[in-house]
């Protein structure tokens, strides 16, 4: 069937909604949100990094752009979460476009370092922007009884969701599913094939008439926008935000590590990587020791790049081919 994937996506969104209504323990939504947020980050990173071969080290900068757009909007207009996410996506997308323009001549490691530098400059600027809390950070209290299209969304008794964690979880889950759909669409489209050509050899791609410049700009914009959407609810989730937590290098690292572990060639890679690594980190930091989640990222990453260079997906493909022979 032509739309099988889309139907599965819709079913998953419905499934997420059912989960929020059935599961009573907020704690699961609390950690589920983080894993889903990482899924969006990994998927977004992979569009540029996995398909196009451009390694973004500054993912945290895009996430923080979304988060701080949301904070500014809350302070300025007191808008709801969905609007914050849309705005966060727009601003981070514009940042992505600007990054693309600024780094047109840069390849490989130079591009990676430029994105890192960009994130650091942004962090410094935000640290001086007192309207959003400056270096000291700011507390965000989510709206008491938020409404969307006339419906009461979060309320202990009358709302669609009994509390904010459920709402945030559902929103992030929906975003994650849409991101994965977009990534899959890109992968099978002209854009994806063009990016792949750029990854193999930018000169050759150009000679063959691939509009490398335009494709790169589209990819940086889409990737940045997704990260911004993922970052926008961060302030509401943490109820406090400061530059150090929003620009944390861990976001950048996980956004790279998760696709690498899952496999960068396909949309399923970042999803698998985020599920595995994200869950492992949450479990280890909550039940064993908080430092261990970083150790897990480190060890898993090293082991995977050594024994499974194409990630889990590549590993499966290879073993399947092997058994066929």
């Amino acid at each position: 069937m032509k739309y099988t994937f889309e139907i599965i996506c819709m079913l998953l969104i419905v499934g997420l909604f059912v989960l929020t209504q059935v599961v009573g323990n907020q704690f699961y939504f609390f950690i589920g949100f983080v894993i889903l947020q990482y899924m969006v980050m990994a998927t977004a990173w992979n569009i540029l990094g996995g398909y196009g071969g451009y390694v973004n080290f500054g993912s945290a900068g895009f996430l923080a752009t979304g988060a701080y757009t949301a904070v500014a909007l809350i302070n300025f207009l007191d808008v709801g979460l969905v609007e914050q996410m849309v705005a966060g996506g727009i601003f981070a997308g514009l940042l992505g476009l600007a990054t693309g323009y600024l780094t047109l001549r840069l390849r490989g490691v130079y591009f990676a370092i430029a994105t890192l530098a960009l994130a650091i400059i942004l962090e410094t600027v935000v640290a001086h922007w007192d309207y959003v809390g400056g270096a000291a950070g700011t507390s965000i209290l989510p709206k008491r009884k938020p409404e969307l299209l006339g419906e009461l969304i979060v309320d202990r008794k009358a709302g669609i969701f009994a509390n904010y964690k459920e709402y945030l979880f559902f929103l992030m889950g929906t975003v994650a599913i849409i991101s994965v759909w977009v990534a899959r669409y890109i992968e099978n489209s002209k854009l994806g094939r063009g990016l792949n050509a750029i990854k193999d050899s930018e000169e050759a791609a150009e000679c063959m008439g691939v509009p490398t410049l335009r494709l790169k700009l589209i990819a940086t914009t889409i990737s940045g926008a997704m990260m911004g959407v993922a970052g926008a609810p961060l302030a509401s989730y943490l109820t406090f935000i400061d530059p150090l937590s929003a620009f944390n290098l861990e976001y950048a690292i996980n956004a790279i590590a998760m696709p690498m572990i899952g496999g960068t060639v396909s949309w399923a890679g970042p999803v698998i990587g985020a599920l595995l690594l994200g869950t492992a980190q949450q479990v280890s930091s909550l039940w064993i020791q908080s430092e261990l989640n970083l150790l897990i990222v480190g060890v898993v990453l090293v082991v995977f790049v050594i024994i499974a260079p194409e990630g889990i997906i590549g590993w499966f493909r290879k073993s399947r081919q092997g058994s066929r022979r």
């Binding site: 690292i253 970083l294 150790l295 480190g298 090293v302």
Partner: peptide, 30 residues
């Protein structure tokens, strides 16, 4: 042996050192 010999893409080498970074860091914390 793992990366350079096989001409593996630099991305994997980068990830390797990224992992090393965290292993050293957590080792120091412990």
């Amino acid at each position: 042996n793992v990366f350079e010999k096989s001409g593996a893409e630099s991305l994997r080498g980068l990830a390797f050192f990224f992992g090393l970074l965290f292993i050293i860091e957590v080792g120091l914390i412990i």
